[in-house]
């Protein structure tokens, strides 16, 4: 047959093993590897070494020697456990509220607004718009709005919804509010990208198979948008757990709302207790890593890791 000629000519002639060892791939990866070694691995090792340092004998404040002082870890945990717990509970609460607020928003933009592309783009711009203003400025603006003399707080007090001695800034509420507000775009955008691709024919099929709108949402929409939910919650939870702006006394927090980020900042910049700051950082990283791996494993979206 005439076609047989082609089949032999196009038979794979390259050895797959030889291709895998191609030096070109290594060469192309080199900048990335160098970058990671220089800016990720080196600081990480340095951080790890610092976390085991011991104060220099007869040295000044802020002078430390390399050692293996694992007690640094037990010390920071016993001293700062309320901050550690607070960090993760605030981050969890903020992630939850951001999800609850973002999901309907992303669903509207990604599914309901498909018929009106202009509205869709306009709403997306509105979601991204806060990025054009500095994170710090926006948080400061909220501090103004929540301050004791502000119109909002005065009105709430006038309506007796708040006690005369109550404050809004410096409370857990204002910190969680700030975290939620600041991370909503990070939640909305990944949710939007998965919901925008959601095939509504699956929803119709669910309806056709006797599932009520709520059941369709629970059995079809949520599982199909799981990659977006996982990506959004990670993008919110991880930075929120380490955030030190919102909880800072200069912004929305108070003495009773300090999170791990604030403690690390204080130990590093004010107390110059570098080993404690490093140990806290390592703890923060490890806990986040463990939580995230369990979460991703359980949600069945391993391909994201």
């Amino acid at each position: 047959m005439a076609f047989a000629v082609f089949s032999t000519a196009t038979a794979p002639s390259t050895d797959p093993v030889a291709r895998r060892r191609s030096p070109v791939a290594l060469f192309l990866l080199l900048p990335g590897i160098l970058y990671l070694v220089l800016f990720f691995l080196t600081p990480l090792v340095s951080l790890l070494l610092t976390s085991f340092q011991t104060p220099r004998e007869f040295g000044d404040i802020g002078q430390y020697d390399y050692a293996f002082r694992w007690q640094n870890y037990t010390e920071v945990i016993t001293t700062y456990w309320p901050h550690i717990v607070r960090s993760f509970s605030y981050a969890l609460a903020a992630t939850f509220f951001a999800l609850v607020i973002s999901y309907p928003l992303a669903y509207f933009i990604g599914v309901k607004a498909r018929k009106w592309p202009l509205l869709q783009s306009l709403m997306l711009v509105l979601v991204i718009a806060p990025f054009f203003i500095s994170f710090l400025l926006r948080t400061l603006a909220w501090k103004q709005l929540f301050s004791d003399e502000s119109f909002v707080v005065q009105s709430l007090k006038a309506l007796s919804l708040l006690g005369p001695e109550a404050h809004v800034t410096g409370t857990a509420f204002s910190v969680i509010f700030g975290l939620t507000y600041n991370f909503i775009p990070f939640m909305t955008l990944p949710l939007y990208t998965t919901l925008e691709r959601l095939d509504v024919r699956y929803l119709e099929a669910g309806n056709d198979l006797y599932a009520s709108p709520f059941q369709v949402f629970r059995k079809v929409t949520i599982p199909l948008s799981m990659p977006g939910i996982v990506a959004g919650t990670l993008l919110t939870f991880i930075p929120a757990a380490g955030d030190y702006i919102n909880a800072s006394r200069d912004f929305l927090g108070g003495t009773g709302t300090q999170m791990m980020g604030n403690v690390i900042e204080a130990n590093f910049l004010v107390l110059q207790n570098y080993p404690s700051a490093a140990a806290l950082s390592i703890i923060l990283m490890t806990v986040i890593l463990v939580i995230v791996s369990i979460y991703v494993k359980r949600s069945g979206t391993e391909e994201l890791l």
Binding site: G206, N207, D208, S212
Partner: peptide, 20 residues
């Protein structure tokens, strides 16, 4: 009646089998 209340089932052109 809403579609989930009707005693009707559809074989869709796209099949619409739930991928998950």
């Amino acid at each position: 009646q809403k579609s989930f209340q009707r005693p009707v089932n559809t074989v869709f052109q796209s099949y619409a089998l739930f991928p998950h």
